[in-house]
Design a protein around this nucleic acid. Sequence first.
DNA 1: TAAGTGATCTCT
DNA 2: GAGATCACTTAA
Length: 177
Amino acid sequence: MAGMRRLVEEDFNSKDTVGLARELLGKYLVLGTAERPEAFAITEVEAYDGPEDLACHASKGRTKRTEPLFGPSGHWYVYLCYGIHEMLNLVTGPRDYPAAILIRGLAGVSGPGRLTKRLGIDRRFNAKASSGDSGLWIEDRGLALGDAEVDVTPRIGVDYAGEDWANRPYRFVIKNG
DNA sequence: TAAGTGATCTCT
DNA sequence: GAGATCACTTAA
């Protein structure tokens, strides 16, 4: 199909985490194999931007759990939240720059916990590359969104991070998505 | 509005 | 080892 491209590590190597998050809207999360792919448009994301970002897990240091955030971009960071929900994040930025984009919603699936459950994504994907080999990757199918189609808000559930970081406009949602 | 649920991290 | 915390969801 023309204008369709699987995104790779280099596509997410920028330190402009917020810009990458904005651009991830309208891309497709694809699950399965090249023969039998299941694709979902990404409708809601949040940026977690580096060691200074008090809402980013990596701001509390490099631990066994947060290790994937410090690894190469274009890999998955999947962790368990509230004992129940698997959260799917795409690592961004160069090695040793801990940043990621939380994928919070897909077309037809609202909520970060619900989308991983629906797609059967869990910690087996943690630290894996987004690729055909891992069975989970991102595609650009040529859809571009104008600013009028995108809502920008503070991130959800990060009040603990203090006023500055909690209020930053790091969440992007497709309107009517 | 509050409970459920368990990995992770920071103390002791 | 104990205790607090947590990027959520569901039922009421």
